[in-house]
Simulated scan of single mutants.
Amino acid sequence: MLLTIKEIEVELYNKFSPFQGEMDDLILRKRDTPVNNLEKLESHLHVKLKGSFLSFIMEYNLDNFSLGNISFGTGGDYLEKLIYLNEGDGFNNWWEGSLRPKSIIVIALSDPYTILLNTVTGMIYAITSEPSVNDDRPVADDFELFIRVVGSLFLKEISAQDAIKFTGATNQDFWNNI
């Protein structure tokens, strides 16, 4: 059984708050300030955020948050980080060619994976620096499912096979490796 997002929030708090600030990046915190840069991100990247990803960033502060080994924000404004990761300056291009694939953006990083969101379909993908056949295969049908499975793997230690079953992922390598 997968944890809900609320259960993940509570379990992360219970597990890491006793460390008195040493592991705050592993605590999922409710947003206490409004999202300021949403229009800027959408304008710069020519995308429209929607669905469970938009709901999640409106409710939770990802500025300094990691879930297991998946890092969303590492300090500073999360949406500004997304703009930087997705604009491409020649150094940090995660895509091949000169133009970022339309409607696809990086939302998180994990060694060795880059986590991508298709802003039209809501599907989540994971790629590595070595192109493979799995790059075009989703790891989850939507962001909420992705978070719930990653959180359940991290906190309940569900199996990779359970993760694959819950997500219906066709990119099974990702779930077997994280």
Rank of each mutant, 00 (worst) to 15 (best):
G73D: 12
F174H: 11
E157S: 09
Q20S: 10
D89E: 12
A126Q: 00
G151P: 02
V133S: 07
E96S: 13
Y78G: 10
G21S: 06
I27L: 12
L99V: 06
F154E: 13
I127N: 01
P131C: 00
D111L: 11
I104K: 15
T74Y: 09
P18R: 11
M123P: 00
V150W: 00
D142P: 01
D63A: 00
D32N: 11
F154K: 05
W95C: 04
E80D: 14
N171W: 14
E22G: 01
K165F: 07
F143V: 00
D25T: 11
V139D: 14
Y78W: 03
D63H: 13
E7C: 03
V133P: 03
S132V: 01
F19E: 14
E22F: 02
N176W: 10
L62I: 01
K15Q: 15
V10Y: 05
N37R: 13
G76S: 03
D136R: 14
I164W: 08
F91P: 02
E130G: 14
L41Y: 08
P34V: 10
T121G: 04
L85W: 15
E22C: 03
D89L: 01
H46W: 04
E11H: 09
H44G: 05
E130D: 14
L28A: 09
T128L: 01
S103G: 12
D111C: 05
N61H: 02
A163F: 04
L116N: 01
K156C: 00
S152R: 09
I104D: 11
E7H: 12
S52K: 07
P138I: 08
K81Y: 09
D135A: 09
E42K: 12
L99H: 15
N69C: 11
S103V: 01
F154T: 03
Y60F: 15
N93H: 13
A126V: 02
I83K: 12
F91V: 04
S71I: 03
I5Y: 08
A169N: 02
G75I: 02
V150K: 00
